Simulated assay, not measured.
Amino acid sequence: MSTPSKGSGGDDHSPEHRPDDNPPSGAGDPAADTAAGQRFVLHKPGGEPVKTGRNLPVAIASGCALGALVYFSIFPWPQLFTIITSLGVLIGLRELNRAFGGKGMTLAVAPLAVGGVAMQAGAYFGGADWLAGITAATAIACLAWRLRGGAEGFVADASANLFVLVYLPFLLATWMLLIAHPEDGQYRLVVFIVVTISSDIGGYFAGILLGRHKMAPVISPNKTWEGFGGSVVGCAVAGALCVTLLLDGPWWVGVVLGLAVVLAATVGDLIESLFKRDLGVKDMGRFMPGHGGLMDRIDSLLIAGPVVWIVLSLLLP
């Protein structure tokens, strides 16, 4: 589910990470860097070394381990995936609580945790209706929980709680709507994950090898239009292949899905960039070696999940 390619903020390990002004000695020798435990080094077509911004072997190993965990949780018992997303809610909530706490805002951790886990099970077993109902009940519980803190800071705390409720457990629960499809839910989830990480992979390599023109310098200075083009190509190709091979759908549906995903994934990266900049953090945590926190790894997946569900529901009902 994760790749070595992502980092959403301009200061963290974004796909279009540029070389440092003062690279360490040996930066032109990938073997030396790897042997010394430093960052893996790629080279541009002209031979110029490009730093990836992370320990690439460790990042790949972490991503593969998480991907294997997801795969074996949906085959052959897709119900087990509710446990994975529920753990994701709890881990992500812990990271978000720490980040918001640094700005003096208080989250209603207990209602968010209980409601967030219930939303995962509700989405899988009851569908969108149950998800909507549990989300509304959790929102009310969070607002009521904050009443005991008095008027000072109420609006800020209430806004933070509602943001977290929607951003983490609600968007995460749309993955359960995908997998709950009665005919090919497991494969829909696989298509969603593969197409989304293809955006990361395409943007990563196109960005570090070809990136020149800044895409959103104010929000994420390291993102380039060349990297975005790589994401478009990666998503379109992956979408066409996955839809035809796994869902028995027409290739053009896969292309439409890929284009929708690349837009959603890019927006997800930029949202996370602004979010972390506003809260004054570089990484949300250290959950995954070589990747940062869980929230650093699933930002584009969170935004892409409901988009994939909508596209597939409309074009492949």
Score class of each variant (00 low, 15 high):
G207T: 14
A158Q: 05
C142D: 01
F170L: 15
R98H: 08
K103T: 12
T244D: 00
Q79W: 07
D33M: 14
D248S: 07
G122A: 13
D269R: 10
F81N: 00
G126P: 04
F287P: 01
E16N: 12
P221L: 07
G293A: 11
L245G: 02
R54C: 07
G185S: 10
Q186P: 12
L56F: 15
E183A: 15
S86M: 04
V109I: 11
V256F: 02
Q79T: 06
T196L: 03
L66Q: 02
W175N: 14
E226R: 12
F205Y: 07
I60Y: 01
D157I: 09
V117N: 06
Q79I: 10
V191F: 06
S199A: 14
D283V: 06
A136R: 10
F81I: 00
V190Y: 00
D33F: 12
M119L: 08
A123S: 10
V243A: 02
G63C: 08
G63Y: 08
D11E: 15
G126E: 03
L257V: 09
D278Q: 08
I298P: 03
L270P: 12
R94D: 05
T106S: 14
S8Q: 06
G53C: 09
G293D: 01
G280Y: 04
A68M: 05
I134H: 07
G116E: 01
T196S: 05
L301A: 13
H13N: 15
W130I: 09
C235W: 01
Y187V: 04
A110Y: 04
V281T: 10
K44S: 10
T174P: 06
L259T: 01
V255I: 14
G88L: 09
A156K: 14
T196E: 00
N22Y: 08
D269P: 04
L301E: 05
F287G: 14
D29Y: 06
P15E: 03
R146S: 09
I134M: 08
D20V: 13
C142I: 11
V307N: 08
A206L: 09
G254D: 02
V237E: 00
G127Y: 08
Q186S: 12
A132E: 02
S86L: 02
M215W: 06
V267W: 06
N55A: 07
V89H: 03
I310W: 10
G258K: 10
A264N: 08
P182A: 13
T3W: 11
S86Q: 09
M215F: 13
M176T: 03
V267K: 11
M288H: 07
D20M: 11
A264Q: 09
H291I: 13
D11T: 13
S62Q: 07
A123Y: 00
P76S: 03
G101H: 06
P30Q: 02
L90T: 10
A265N: 08
L80H: 11
G37I: 08
S159L: 15
V164D: 05
A31Y: 04
V194D: 00
A158Y: 08
L274D: 00
E48N: 12
L171M: 15
D184R: 15
